[in-house]
Simulated scan of single mutants.
Amino acid sequence: MRFFGLKSCDTCRKAFKSLTASGHTPNVIDVRADGIGDNDLATIVATFGEAAINRASTTWRGLSDDEKAADPTTLLATHPTLMKRPVIDADGQWTIGWKADVQAKYLGD
Rank of each mutant, 00 (worst) to 15 (best):
R2T: 09
F3G: 02
K7Q: 13
S8R: 15
D10A: 06
C12M: 03
K14V: 07
K17V: 15
S18N: 10
L19Y: 02
L19G: 01
T20D: 11
A21E: 14
S22L: 14
G23W: 01
N27G: 15
N27Y: 12
I29A: 13
R32A: 13
G35D: 06
I36L: 12
I36N: 03
I36M: 10
G37F: 08
N39W: 15
N39G: 10
D40N: 09
L41I: 00
L41P: 00
L41E: 00
V45Y: 03
T47H: 06
T47P: 09
E50M: 12
A52K: 00
N54P: 04
N54G: 06
R55Q: 14
A56E: 11
T58K: 15
R61F: 04
S64F: 05
E67C: 12
D71W: 11
T73R: 09
T73K: 10
T74A: 07
L76T: 01
H79Y: 08
T81E: 06
T81Y: 11
M83N: 05
K84G: 04
R85Y: 06
P86M: 06
I96W: 08
G97Y: 01
W98S: 01
K99H: 12
D101Q: 09
D101P: 13
K105I: 11
G108W: 01
G108F: 02
